[in-house]
Simulated scan of single mutants.
Amino acid sequence: MEKQYTPPKIWTHDAESGGKWASVNRPVSGATHEKVLPVGEHALQLYSMGTPNGQKITIMLEELLALGEEAEYDAHMIRILEGEQFSSGFVDINPNSKIPALVDRAGDNDQPIFESASILVYLAEKFSALLPEKGVKRTRVLNWLFWLHGAAPYLGGGFGHFYAYAPEKFEYPINRFTMEIKRQLDVLDKQLAKNEFIAGDAFSIADIAIWPWYGNLILGKLYDAQEFLQVEEYPHLQRWAKATLARPAVQRGRIINRDWGDKWEQLENRHSAENIDKVLALKPA
């Protein structure tokens, strides 16, 4: 039986109770130390880590490059478990201290963009790609983009935290969030039963946003929960997840700003296409 918890009249921060993330979770914002961010040679400077939220942007940039767009970029690793998101340089471009954050240096003044949905829309509009310019098709893509931003916290901060990261396992929150994730997987499976891609008949920023969370989950690359969630119950979602992973730009984008996994999945910083090529060449045949 779970321990009974009675909230105190006034909450106080217990730095020892946060499990894996205790060292970086805190109830205040702002910088903890002074550090200038590195800057590469390209107009687009990405500061991120290869978590699902970080993968969205590197996959987007690689998809733009695959389309022939002039979207060259530098991607700099921000190690969030070491608190690098609280440096003065990072806080200057994202006061919320969350990855990813992008700076576009193409104009007269540097333009910082934060929140992954905002970055995806910014890049789609900058390059006129992967998001219809107007009308019903644009609305459908944005519907699913914003669905992801309402749904993913239940997967990451809810299910993922209590199933994989919490210092103790408790039945109630795991059951609560598992039920919601199963419902979300069913929503996606039913949508993909009627459509090749998330928002219809064309690959878009909706697919790019949703795949790093739900595609990785279904394919066993997130939380190792395939058996627990019975992912075989979602054949249309499985089809889409595998087809998306097979895209060359997805294979390239998913390995950037990572220092975990197999050697061919790890590229800490990206400054050119050749950086990715060298890492992917290590993949076993």
Rank of each mutant, 00 (worst) to 15 (best):
M1K: 10
E2G: 06
Q4A: 11
Q4N: 09
Y5K: 15
P7T: 09
W11T: 02
D14Q: 06
W21L: 13
A22M: 08
S23R: 08
V24Q: 03
P27K: 13
V28R: 12
G30R: 02
V36A: 15
V36F: 08
L37K: 01
P38D: 07
G40N: 02
G40H: 06
E41K: 14
Q45Y: 04
Y47L: 08
M49V: 13
T51H: 04
T51L: 04
T51S: 09
T51V: 09
N53A: 08
G54F: 08
I57D: 04
T58V: 08
L61C: 03
L61N: 03
E62H: 11
E63H: 12
L64N: 01
L64M: 06
L65M: 13
L65Q: 09
A66N: 11
A66W: 11
A66V: 07
L67N: 04
L67D: 08
G68N: 07
E72P: 00
Y73G: 06
R79F: 07
L81R: 07
E84Q: 15
Q85H: 15
Q85V: 04
S87L: 02
G89W: 05
G89V: 06
K98Q: 15
K98H: 08
I99D: 11
I99L: 12
P100T: 04
A101C: 07
L102D: 10
P112T: 12
F114V: 02
E115T: 00
S116F: 14
S118G: 12
S118P: 00
L123G: 02
A124C: 01
E125H: 09
F127T: 00
K134E: 14
G135H: 06
R138A: 00
R138Y: 05
R140Y: 12
N143W: 02
W144E: 03
W144F: 15
F146R: 03
L148M: 11
L148D: 03
H149M: 14
G150L: 10
P153V: 04
L155M: 10
F159R: 04
F159S: 06
G160V: 06
F162M: 02
A164D: 06
E168D: 10
F170L: 12
E171N: 10
N175M: 12
T178R: 11
E180N: 05
D186W: 06
V187I: 15
K190C: 03
K190H: 12
L192C: 11
A193S: 14
K194E: 15
K194H: 14
N195K: 07
F197Y: 15
I198L: 12
D201Q: 13
I205R: 00
I205G: 00
W213L: 15
W213Q: 14
W213M: 14
Y214D: 02
N216Y: 02
N216G: 05
L217M: 09
Y223Q: 05
D224I: 01
A225F: 01
F228R: 13
P235C: 10
L237S: 08
L237R: 00
R239M: 07
A241C: 05
A241H: 07
A243D: 11
A249I: 07
A249D: 10
Q251F: 02
I256G: 07
N257L: 06
W260A: 13
G261M: 08
E265L: 12
N269I: 02
R270K: 14
R270S: 13
H271G: 06
A273M: 04
E274P: 00
I276D: 03
I276T: 08
D277P: 00
K278P: 00
A281V: 06
K283N: 08
K283S: 10
A285M: 03
A285G: 11
